[in-house]
Each structure stands twice: as structure tokens, then as C-alpha cells.
Design a binder for these strands. Sequence first.
DNA 1: CTATAATGCGAGCATTCACTCGCTTTTCAT
DNA 2: ATGAAAAGCGAGTGAATGCTCGCATTATAG
Lengths: 209, 209
Amino acid sequence: MARKPPTKPRKNALQERSRVTVDALVEATARILVREGFEKTSTNRIAEIAGVSVGSLYQYFPSKEALVAAVIERHNEEIMGIVRTTLTEVTDMPIEKAVRRLVTVAIDAHRINPELHRVLAEQIPRAGKLDVEAFNREVHAHVRAYFNSHRKEMRKIDLDVATLICVSTIEAVAHNTVLNQAEMLSDKMVRTLVDETTRMVVGFLRPPA
Amino acid sequence: MARKPPTKPRKNALQERSRVTVDALVEATARILVREGFEKTSTNRIAEIAGVSVGSLYQYFPSKEALVAAVIERHNEEIMGIVRTTLTEVTDMPIEKAVRRLVTVAIDAHRINPELHRVLAEQIPRAGKLDVEAFNREVHAHVRAYFNSHRKEMRKIDLDVATLICVSTIEAVAHNTVLNQAEMLSDKMVRTLVDETTRMVVGFLRPPA
DNA sequence: CTATAATGCGAGCATTCACTCGCTTTTCAT
DNA sequence: ATGAAAAGCGAGTGAATGCTCGCATTATAG
């Protein structure tokens, strides 16, 4: 049953209860990151909260960073799932509807777990940099493709510049709305923000009247 | 000569060479943050690079955070200086010119010390949070005031929403341009970005043609 | 039932790091 | 010149933390 030397199972080998252990560890890491901050997130504490020993932790994760990376990946997948779905739904919609939908989704995505998102946003530059860059590239590629296939509705403009500006804008508005304005977010306020952001982006892309 | 009990001079008392020491410490902190990252920034290392002993460090800075905060403050002051000046210059300009100027300045400000800016952007949420919030509030207040006094050039729109969206947008474009697109920044590219961003923001604020 | 592998354990090691304390050197008013 | 205060020094301390290693427990196969 062992196709490898007995020592060094380290990190793979998920058959049954180990799955549970791994999940508990990732979940515990996320919880501690949110509730106690990055500084307090020690491997011993993670193991404690996960109800697992440090030794077991190190059987599946070669380092503390690996754990944080796993949390990042999980969170990113969650968001990317939504974004991907939306971008597909939107393919055949006219610009106005598509942009409105994307702005809404961006805000929703940021609202999934704002605290975790904030902590990760702080820590990502250190760990998981690659994941996030891949994430960004995927979003840019999708949006660029959408713009390309809807060129006729748009004025003449460099697609890369348009993509950079639009993605930056939507991301920033969502980010600032959810993270800075805390919960001063009445539904009405959110609707206004969506309306206005959509108006700005669409007005930017459309040919001048 | 001592207006305080002999012990606990800690942090004030700058008469002559101590100024040099303090400056050297702040400068060293900034350099290490940029060149070796936050993790490697230990008080011992800071003292070493500053050419000063750890003991002296703790005479002027009660903690490591105090040093990082000093760096943040210095950097923020540098940027706020530029932004404040620009916002005054711009007071009587029409929207189009004012926005173009602000976009340009935002990018310039991000280019002052991009590496330091990046590291601080990562670490700021932990330390110096207050400084940065004050910074943001000041910018928002200035922009809002400008919008208010130029209402006639604008369509009817909630000033707070307009301010949030515009500031977020300009900041994000500047940030992504300088930090993500690295030095793929030809002057021409920058000019295009400034043009297009200006166009978007102005189109957003102006009454529909 | 027994042997073997997979999983789990947690005390402890090694290291790093913020910070202290007792002392020396420099400055300067008198 | 002198003495006291200001400035500077840096080995040392104590706590935190990432990670290892030898052993214990559980699951599975024959």
C-alpha cells in the first residue's frame, strides 16, 4: 500500500479522516486570521483551534505560509466561481446591462466575508502572490474578451487601457464601499452606487452621443 | 536643564546630534522596509543600519511600531504636501482641467517611492491606521469642497457619492498603473491613461450633452 | 490475530526578536 | 576645570514561535 519510502508522506495522502483534519486546519486558520489577526496566527494556535496537534499540522502543510496560502486559495476560488459564472452569463448582454451586473457582483463578492477579505488583502502581497496575479490576469482576460466582442457598441479605444481602467474602477468602488464605509451601507446607498458607477463606466465606453 | 525626572526622557529631548540620530533611524527603517521587507525589519537591524545602538533607538522610539509609524507619517506628509498644493492651485479651474491635473498628480505621487509605497500599503492596516484615515478624510473633504463650488458645471448628483467614486477611481488607476504595470510605463502610455481617466471622470460629472 | 502502514500526538529544541539596564562618552553652563 | 545632564552604547534577558522527532493510536490487509 505504500508506493513510497515510509518516511516523507508530508502533505499528500488524503484518504479518510485526514481530509477532516486538513479541512479543520484550513478553517481554523481562516477563523484565527479574522478573529485574532495575522500576528496571533501561530501554528500552535491553529492546531489548538483545529483540535489537532502541531505534528499533524506539519504532516499536511510544510509551513505556516502553506496554510495561509490554502486559505487564500479557498477564498479566491469562491470569488472566482462567482465572477466566472457572471462573466459567462453576461457574454451576450449589451454593455449597459453587463456592466451593471458586474458592478453588483463585485460588491457582492466583497461582501462574502469582508473581514477575511481585508486580512487577506493585507497579507496577500507576502504569500500567495502568484495566485492573486493569476486571478487578476484571468479577470482582465475575460473582460477584455467581452469588450472585444462588443466593439460595435463602443467608441474607438485601446482595449487594454479600457480594461485596466474599468476593472480598476469597479474593483476600487467595491472595495472602498464594503471595507471603508463599513455598514453605513443601506440598500438604497448601494443601489445609488451601483447606478452611478455603471453610468460612469458605460458613459466612458460608449461612443459620444 | 532637565524639566523631568532623570529617567524617562524617552522620545522627546532633541537638541543637537540627537536630531541626526532620529533621522538616521527613520531613514534606516524606510530603507530596510524597502530592501528587505517587513519581516526582516528588526529593531536590531534598524539600529545597525542607522549606525546607532539599539539602546539609543529606544531612547527616542518606544517601540518598533513607533518607528514604522514615523516612516508612514513622513511619507504621507510628502504626498499630502503635493496633493494639498495641487488642490489649491486647482480651485478656480474648470472641471476638465482640474481633473486632468489631479489624475496626473495622483500618478506622480505614487511614483515618488513606489517600493516604499507598496510596502507601506501592505503594512499600514496594522500600524498607522489613524494617520491614513485622516489622510483619506482630508482628501475627500477637499475634493468634496471643490465639487461643491463647481456645482454649476456638474449634473445633479449626490456629492458624497460623486466624491467616493471619483477619488476611488483616480486612486485605483494611479495605484494599479504604478504598482502593477511596473515600468511598462512609456510616457505615451501614461498620457493615454491620464487622458482616458480624465475623460471618464469628467464625462461622469458633467451634465449629459 | 497480526503485521504494516497511515494518522495523530505534543514536549521540547533552536532561533529570532523586542526591549532593558548599567555603564561610558560627549556636551556645556558655570 | 568641573560636574551634571544629555546622548550613546551593546551584551544580555525573556518570551514567542516555527518546526522536529520519537512514540502512540487507529485502520486495513492477509
